[in-house]
Design a protein around this nucleic acid. Structure first.
Length: 428
RNA sequence: GGAGAGGUGGCAGAGUGGCCGAAUGCACCGCCUUGCUAAGGCGACGUACCUUCACGGGUACCGGGGGUUCGAAUCCCCCCCUCUCCGCCA
């Protein structure tokens, strides 16, 4: 969430930020939050004074004679009754303020382009050559089904639409790319994590997915737990409520986990193939560091670079885009997407998403550190995909396919596949 | 799932109704003393909010929430977490 002080001093920045994100209802939360804040600030000094009187009164009690006691106790009871009314108001106001403040989105940075959806994201750079095929190019699902690597029909039968089953070499290729992703980040000093997949609401709220993301989240109501849509949730929440030592920062983590998304409201969109599915695996990088904008910007570039290095190592052409306001989530201040070339879609399509939040998530998570001098400050957090599968299998299969339906393995992935250079048999 | 024990400041640990935002030890920081693998003395040392130009003052917080009471770290209820034993189990 934003600092209430930012809202007091510059409410317009918060309002226009929400507008830039095409969230007009949340822009209104700014004024509702400020109204509750004003009421609360009027109330608190009164409450403090009354509590002070009550406390002082209690200490006098022992010195009084019986008659004085009776009078005094009556007075104290009166005070208590008044206090409990005001304390009720205080509690209610605090809840209402927290609710509205939780709705106010992070303010997008100035370089975030205006726009309502991903069609208005702006290209930052394009890397790699898009391959020109001298044979009819096939989609990953055609290759996969012909090779016996993918079964959509039976998966849908047992688990519903947007499900899939992988078999054989494709399972091994998936493991190869995910393991390569983990190794790459571990080499760069990231600590590998295997996090919980089911988390409490506090973690969903703290990372900014709740409120708002409930419809996209599978929930185990019986236990009050939520299946994570990304390991960003448990990993960024790791140090929630803590005050870290500055010398221990930055914290750099790389998590591999299964991820689950309901994909509500996407009916009819990306229905074919492995692009949009309910369940996938993702290697995610998360950084927690000091409250310093320059450092956040440096980290942001570096985590994008990590992902680009993976794509380059896999000989995949891609582009980096600056995500526009309307395509930005609630908690992000700025986001780069990496889109990898997918021949079947004849487009660069999103495979990575690199976000910076400044202290927005840290405030919600109460995640702080103690600087060398002075009071604890909220940390900055960032995250980015390293590899998400099966989506990343789409460009791997399609860009590296041969005319006979076999698929070449990028050199850097071969060590993870026992040195094999080609997967599959001739099927076309 | 059943039975029991416990959650207090960075850590350890005392505190069972007012004298407690909280002893003591360790750690950390500042000053001083003495010097051989470091010791001793003194001081400071939680977080948030309100208030003050400032010094300072006030309020809240002892896992979370609610209750009893003039007054709760302390008593009662619910929840969460940790540990031990039993059961079950990949």
């Amino acid at each position: 969430m934003l600092d209430i002080k930012v809202l007091r001093e510059n409410p317009d920045a918060a309002r226009s930020g929400a507008i830039k994100k095409h969230m007009p209802d949340r822009a209104e939360a700014v004024d509702r939050a400020l109204a509750f804040d004003a009421e609360l600030r009027a109330l608190i000094p009164r409450l403090d004074a009354m509590r002070s009187e009550q406390k002082a009164g209690g200490k006098v009690l022992g010195k009084l004679n019986p008659e004085e006691r009776v009078v005094f106790l009556a007075k104290q009871k009166q005070l208590k009754a008044e206090l409990s009314v005001l304390e009720g108001e205080e509690k209610l106001l605090k809840e209402k303020l927290a609710e509205q403040l939780g709705l106010v989105p992070n303010i997008p940075d100035p370089e975030v382009p205006d726009g309502k959806d991903d069609s208005q994201n702006t290209e930052v750079r394009r890397v790699g050559e898009v391959r020109v095929f001298d044979f009819p190019v096939r989609a990953h699902y055609d290759i996969g089904e012909a090779q016996g690597w993918i079964d959509f029909a039976r998966a849908a039968d047992m688990a519903g639409s947007r499900n899939y089953m992988l078999f054989g070499d494709l399972v091994l290729l998936q493991d190869a790319i995910l393991r390569f992703a983990v190794d790459l980040l571990v080499e760069r000093g990231f600590v590998p994590i295997d996090p919980p997949l089911l988390v409490r609401d506090a973690a969903m709220f703290g990372t900014g997915f709740f409120p708002g993301g409930e419809e996209q989240t599978y929930r185990c109501e019986k236990d009050g737990l939520n299946l994570i849509g990304t390991s960003e949730v448990p990993v960024t929440s790791l140090h929630a409520g803590e005050i870290l030592a500055e010398k221990d920062l930055p914290k750099k983590y790389v998590a591999r986990s299964a991820c689950f998304r309901r994909e509500a409201g996407t009916y009819g969109k990306d229905t074919r193939g492995l692009y949009r599915v309910h369940q996938f695996h993702k290697v995610e990088q998360v950084i927690v560091d000091i409250n310093d904008k320059e450092r956040s910007l440096e980290h942001h570039e570096s985590i994008v670079q990590n992902a680009e290095d993976l794509l380059q190592a896999c000989d995949l052409p891609y582009r980096v885009v600056n995500v526009c306001g309307g395509d930005l989530g609630v908690p992000q201040a700025m986001k780069y997407d990496i889109e990898t070339w997918m021949p079947s879609r004849e487009s660069f399509s999103e495979t990575h998403s690199a976000s910076r939040f400044y202290d927005y998530q840290a405030r919600r998570l109460n995640l702080r550190y103690r600087p060398e001098k002075g009071k604890p400050l909220f940390c900055h957090t960032l995250n980015n995909t390293v590899a998400a599968s099966p989506r990343i299998l789409i460009p791997l299969l399609e860009n590296h396919q041969n005319a006979d339906g076999t698929v070449n393995v990028p050199e850097r992935l071969r060590p993870f596949l026992g040195g094999r250079e080609v997967l599959g048999k001739p099927v076309f």
